[in-house]
Design a protein around this nucleic acid. Structure first.
Length: 213
DNA sequence: AACTCGGGGCA
DNA sequence: TGCCCAGAGTT
């Protein structure tokens, strides 16, 4: 039975299955510099990359550095991003982060998780997105869907976020990180839901630890 | 550990 | 129309 696949074989099989069923993995954040990715990722909490891209396309035209972003008052920034949720908090986080970048990091986005997490609105998941996608470091971003779905599939232990992050960082070929992240999210929302997962209609049930236990 | 922010997605 | 949330900060 396919259930006896080891984790590496499971990942291979999943990439095959995901590619087939989700041929277009969720839209990724648009960015052209580490700073833009940092801001876009802060904005992406509790919303979709598509919504973020709608906002940043215009925003980054003029405001793509900490210094230029700080030309905006909090109210002005709020008005530019108010089509996405939590916009007041996010405007506050972004302006505070820009000040910290100028004061403590010479206006550059830091390249370590510890430093990134000193910024406002930047937790472990956001820090990892920046580390992985702007600086090509080994740090798989783990959000709630990734945590739950990868644990159910048997790719991670499900102990905690930090452990899951280490497990997926080692397990998933880096080439597939962005796609795999979106696949797990898409699958987590559509099928492998937190409550009442739709296992009967899941194409991965044959190799899923949760389903086979 | 629980509460808060919020427009979008989805039933 | 109502419920839940593609996190992080605060209390």
């Amino acid at each position: 039975m396919t259930e006896k696949l080891n984790k590496e074989e499971k990942v291979e099989k999943l990439i095959e299955l995901f590619s087939k069923h989700y041929p277009e993995p969720g839209t990724a954040l648009n960015f052209s510099t580490p700073f833009e990715l940092l801001i876009a990722t802060i904005l992406s909490a509790q919303t979709t990359d598509i919504q973020v891209n709608k906002v940043t396309e215009d925003l980054f035209e003029k405001y793509n550095t900490p210094g230029s972003m700080l030309q905006l008052s909090q109210k002005e920034l709020e008005n530019k991003i108010n089509s996405i949720g939590l916009f007041r908090n996010k405007a506050k986080y972004i302006l505070k982060t820009c000040k910290i970048l100028l004061n403590d990091f010479e206006g550059e986005v830091p390249k370590t998780r510890k430093e990134l997490m000193q910024l406002s609105g930047v937790g472990r998941k956001t820090a990892n997105v920046v580390l992985a996608n702007a600086f090509f470091k080994a740090a798989f971003p783990v959000d709630t869907h990734v945590f739950r779905v990868s644990a159910r599939l048997g790719l991670s232990s499900g102990e905690n976020v930090k452990r899951t992050e280490e497990e997926l960082t080692d397990l998933i070929p880096k080439k597939y990180w962005i796609d795999f992240h979106h696949w797990l999210i898409d699958h987590g929302r559509a099928v492998c839901k937190a409550q009442n997962p739709d296992c009967e209609n899941c194409f991965a049930s044959g190799i899923c630890s949760y389903y086979n236990n």
